[in-house]
Amino acid sequence: MKTLVKNPLEQLVDEPDRRSPCVAFQTDWDPGYRQPYWARWSKPKTHYETVVYLKPVPDGILAAPAAFLVADPPERKRFEDLASEWEAETEFMSRQSQAVMHAAYQRIIGMGPVAVPLLLERLRDNPDNWFWALTAITGEDPGKDSTTLMDAREAWLEWGREQGFIE
């Protein structure tokens, strides 16, 4: 779906978790942002970094968010430390409701939208029940029709690609 907004970059920077899959830029926004292929920026005082692909169209520039990144290494390291801790300490728990209550998992949920691409990356490389955290943060549940880990993983990765979180 395409949406016309007056200053989409400003909106995206101010509300980084309210991204549309596709945004059509009007032509009166700061021409400094008008780059031929893509744009990227960081939100001050956070570790958000956003990348959008840009394509000129007759009424403006079509922008498709390509990635929503954690640029700051400490955030990535914090996530990876928590994820590794959770994987190790819940390996022998059989009930999902027990595993997701682990403090490390809850801290990952507490990281909010910044954790979404990292969760999808982790899910892709080392499948596990990251679905609860993804649903808690995003409100989405693309794997709800799945009954296996791998089917749910595929559904979430497809969702992540559609949303521009992963390639």
């Binding site: 390996e91 059989s94 009930r95 999902q96 409701s97 997701v100 499948p127 596990d128 029940n129 679905f131 609860w132 993804l134 649903t135 808690a136 549940d141 794997g143 709800k144 799945s146 009954t147 296996t148 880990l149 791998m150 089917d151 749910a152």
Partner: peptide, 30 residues
Amino acid sequence: PRNKGYNCFAWAARDSARCWDPPGLADWTY
């Protein structure tokens, strides 16, 4: 070997394709 695709309840029921678990916030188990 290790396998995350099924849990003890599934294994006890001779199902090694899924996790038997009541649905939680994300509904992907059996």
